[in-house]
Amino acid sequence: MELQGSVAVVHGAAGALGSAIVRALARDGATVHLTGRTRAPLDLLAAEVGGTAAQVDATDPQAVAAHLDGLGQVDIAVNTVGADHVQGVPLRELSLDDYLQPIVAMATTQFVTATAAARQMASAGRGVIVILSTTAGRVGLPSDGFGPACAAVEAFARQLATEVGPSGVRVVCVRPDAVPGSVAHGSHAAAMWSRAAHARGSTLQEAIDGGLGVPGALLADELTLDAVGDVVAFLASDRARAMTATVTNVSRGALPDL
Results as ranks from 00 to 15, higher is better:
M192S: 08
M192C: 05
W193L: 14
W193F: 14
W193C: 00
W193A: 12
W193Q: 09
W193D: 00
S194W: 01
S194Q: 13
S194E: 15
R195Q: 15
R195A: 15
R195S: 15
R195C: 06
R195K: 14
A196M: 05
A196R: 06
A196Y: 02
A196N: 05
A196K: 01
A197S: 13
A197T: 07
A197C: 09
A199N: 15
A199T: 11
R200L: 12
G201H: 10
G201W: 12
S202M: 13
S202T: 15
S202C: 04
T203K: 02
T203N: 07
T203C: 02
T203P: 07
T203H: 04
L204K: 06
L204D: 08
L204W: 07
L204C: 09
L204A: 10
Q205V: 05
Q205R: 10
Q205D: 14
Q205W: 05
E206I: 02
E206K: 04
E206Q: 15
A207E: 10
A207Y: 02
A207G: 06
I208V: 15
I208T: 07
I208A: 04
D209V: 03
D209M: 03
D209Q: 09
D209C: 01
G210C: 00
G210K: 02
G210F: 04
L212S: 10
G213M: 09
G213F: 06
V214Q: 11
V214N: 11
P215R: 06
P215V: 10
P215D: 08
G216D: 10
G216V: 12
G216Y: 11
G216R: 10
A217K: 14
A217W: 01
A217D: 04
A217E: 09
A217Q: 15
A217V: 06
L218F: 12
L218Y: 11
L218V: 14
L218P: 00
L219D: 09
L219T: 12
A220G: 08
A220T: 13
A220P: 00
A220H: 12
D221S: 13
D221Y: 06
D221A: 14
E222G: 01
E222N: 01
E222F: 03
E222K: 02
E222R: 11
L223S: 05
L223Y: 07
T224M: 08
T224R: 07
T224W: 02
L225P: 02
L225S: 09
L225M: 10
L225A: 10
L225W: 09
D226G: 09
A227P: 00
A227F: 01
V228Y: 06
V228I: 13
V228M: 06
G229D: 07
G229M: 06
G229I: 03
D230A: 15
D230S: 13
D230H: 11
V231E: 11
V231W: 08
V231P: 09
V231S: 11
V232T: 02
V232I: 11
V232C: 03
V232A: 04
V232Y: 05
A233G: 04
A233I: 03
A233W: 07
